[in-house]
Amino acid sequence: MRIKKTFILGLVASLGFANLGLAPSALAAGEAVKLKDIEFSFEGPFGTFDRAAAQRGFQVYREICSSCHSAQYFAFRNLEGIGYSEEMAKAIAAEYQITDGPDDFGDMFERPGKLSDRMPAPFPNQNAARAANGGAYPPDLSVIVKARPGGADYLYSLLTGYEEPPADIELAPGQYYNAYMAGHKIAMPQPLYDDMVGYADGTEATVEQMAKDVTVFLAWLAEPSMEQRKSIGFSFMIFMSIFVVLLYLTNRRIWRPIKKGAMPWVGKDEKA
């Protein structure tokens, strides 16, 4: 069975190479900067979102990020996914004014937000967002963690990666130096400074803490179904593992006489 072994080894090697092959394409945009490796609770096969961190992150998002960035797929009803009660989510929604309509007279009107509403965007359209941000468009944050190589680690690194530019780098007006941005030039000024938000739970609002919290929130927002995915996956794996053992035993039992040369099917038709 040497052939089988070599075949399988070859296969494994091919898959390994294929993975290597994918890595550069995934990293292509951001040169070889090593990201800060943060341990997030949502990593690993059993990882879940830290509700308290996600709620603090939501606060950071509301008070800081959302003044420039939209999150168009984020509905207030989703807040229950990070541990808010329905009443709390309703209360948060009601703090926003939503344009609705047209009413019976054809006019648009403002009303407090409901659970079914989505978070209002800071700018009416992309052009307005560019005009207000020196020509740069602040990307929508709904799936940002999935849309960047490195995901959550990248986001955290970027938020904490503002530094004094090296002498050989020239920054145009409206550009800032960030160690983790592709090309190191970023149009977003440093967004986080110590104590910019006052956490209700008494956590100290350092830049690192806020960056980590908002990353947890955005990782959740990018894939609210992650916990369900992993838990269904776990049941699936348990079920399949047992099932495969049974299939293996069945197969072995069916084949055992055949391996010894028996032909139980011969003459069966004639008897019937």
Binding site: G233, M237, M240, V244, L247, T250, N251
Partner: peptide
Amino acid sequence: YYTAKDALGVGVFLIFFGLFVFY
């Protein structure tokens, strides 16, 4: 004989598939 063997293959394959889909 081969329906049993194919079924075993399907089981192993679905585990491999599931690793990607779920994890």
